[in-house]
Nucleic acid binder design. Structure first.
Lengths: 336, 336
DNA sequence: CTGTTAGCGCTTTCAT
DNA sequence: ATGAAAGCGCTAACAG
């Protein structure tokens, strides 16, 4: 039914070894021969069986991409970018969505990527030592996006610095009473951004000589709903904050919503700054700190691919974030 | 280095054939033997090489999932659900994100899934006859989510009916002047939902004896930004609509935003109903028509898996949608 | 119930 | 520059 390498060899009048070489662009094939092979392959609509090729060569031409979610902005953006880069390089993308704690445990228990990928890309998951060992024991390059660990190549942003930038901006326009809407710091997936962004927030306040107030820090889900709920708590405070730093744009949207429902004005009554600069931030006129997601994904994919070819520079790259001032904080000196 | 089936056979004192049978749970293996094999495999941390197994068996244990986007709510939800179902069934998920028109053309040109998947799931892409032929020529079962085509198994909702439900609801609470915010009906990906939902809108108006007004139908991107822009156009109309049907919740969010910016009230001045009931709709208090995404994904995956095993019922399933009334249309008789 | 053996369709030495 | 042949690590008859 479907053509095999032998059919091509026969039609081109050469051996299967030559077909294999010609089709893969290896050197030491006469141009005329190569053309003949290409023509034969085209005629028969031939394509090498990936499984046979992988078995014989030992290369899987596949990278496993491990994510905790696929339906959140950050991860969807990562998958999108990585998929494009891999496809261009001739690699397949095998997706592993850990989902919940049970899925995560099952994953590291079974290690379904074993013997089927050349490399692994892990996005934003903080792993235990055992989990890191599991990955390392695959014997393939492992890359980390959104975190750093000695011995692995990685790319990330400086969450502490970025959060500091955001709060610094609020301080610079005169705010002294600044609330935090943050992610749960002990969620089962153990994300680090909530921790780091909170640290950056605290650092900025401290450097401004403002005493930390635990009641002004409200944690919850990294979603619109989470931000909305957190903002309600903050509005209920006796000493209401005049400005809010939300650890994600999604949370900021929720906060904006709650503020407007309370018939307060933004930024006159409450200024808001988010984090991410995701697709809707501009439309919402939300001030935020932009993090380069596609750039992180492109960078790490390229280096991971290089690592497969033996380039073993296990370095970490930190990409810069950027303050983006929009309407939700625009009013200068609004608070005095 | 890493254990092969021979190592296990040696350790268990059986042949490799028995190891293969025992590990795959095939019948005709003595319990004692199976236990011995399992123990040996466990000890050596053995797992069969998927490529060797696939080459020998002819089964890829993989399904290709083709989507036009990964970073939109609907598709992210689909991928999430399908991934879970496939993993549970022991299948790999190979993701193909078509991206733009060029990516789409390249995809159907090369057919990168050839010889590497047992089945294909296509989400929401309206394909040309040639493209359908390409897929059919893979010789594997092909399933469609979000559209229907004779000869393929598929699942979808009734977009016309669902849109009708939405507009009918607006009519039932007294509106006569109802605007449409819709998706571009000639976008390169050729999605059908915009077409069908617009038809449902028109049908509902017609059945209510209301004459269609082209100026009240504004099309654009299926995003918050698209909805926002469309709403601006509608507010500029001399005879401003008192109610809006947006073809997606995202568009509805944009519309709400524009309405509030214009200092109009919802639903008193303008009522809004969306489509999808996606994660944030409840929080936004948005009336909408719920479509069961996870259910569609689960249904089609199960039937696709069955089709791989030879169950060739190429049927189409239509899942019901449901009107969800919330605050953006709640006020009864608000318009008279 | 278990073992033997012939492939699956390539890639890769090693010759020539 | 090209061909012959030996695997890659399994699965699937076929015997027994």
């Amino acid at each position: 039914m479907v053509a095999s390498i032998e059919d091509v060899a026969r039609l081109a009048g050469v051996s299967i070894a030559t077909v294999s070489r010609a089709l893969r662009g290896l050197p030491d094939v006469a141009t005329a021969t190569r053309d003949r092979v290409l023509a034969a392959a085209g005629e028969l609509d031939y394509i090498a069986s990936p499984f046979a090729a992988r078995l014989a060569s030992g290369r899987a031409a596949t990278v496993g991409v491990v994510v905790p979610f696929v339906n959140r902005w950050f991860f969807a953006e990562v998958i999108d970018t990585v998929e494009t880069a891999l496809r261009k390089a001739g690699f397949d993308l095998l997706l592993y969505n850990l989902g919940d704690e049970a899925g995560r445990a099952a994953f590291f228990d079974v290690m379904p990527m074993r013997k089927r990928v050349d490399a692994v890309l892990v996005a934003s998951l903080v792993l235990s030592d055992e989990e890191f060992d599991s990955l390392a024991s695959l014997g393939s390059p492992v890359a980390l996006l959104g975190l750093e660990r000695p011995g692995f190549l990685s790319v990330r942003i400086d969450d502490i610095r970025a959060a500091y930038q955001a709060v610094e901006h609020l301080l610079s326009i005169g705010h002294r009473r600044i609330g935090l809407i943050g992610g749960d710091t002990d969620d089962p997936m153990r994300f680090t951004p909530p921790l780091h962004r909170r640290d950056g927030y605290r650092d900025a306040l401290r450097d401004a000589g403002i005493e930390a107030d635990p009641t002004a820090e409200v944690l919850g889900y990294f979603t619109i709903g989470g931000g909305s709920a957190a903002m309600e708590a903050l509005l209920g405070l006796a000493d209401r904050p005049t400005a809010i730093f939300a650890e994600s744009d999604e949370m900021a949207y929720g906060a904006l919503r709650t503020i407007r429902r309370a018939h307060l004005r933004v930024p006159e009554d409450v200024a808001v700054i988010g984090f991410d600069d995701q697709s809707n931030a501009e439309l919402m006129d939300l001030s935020t700190v932009r993090q380069p997601v596609a750039e992180q994904a492109t960078d790490i994919t390229a280096r991971l691919l290089a690592a497969i070819d033996g380039d073993v520079e296990r370095t970490n790259v930190v990409l810069p974030t950027e303050l983006v001032v929009r309407g939700t904080t625009r009013t200068e000196c609004s608070v005095y």
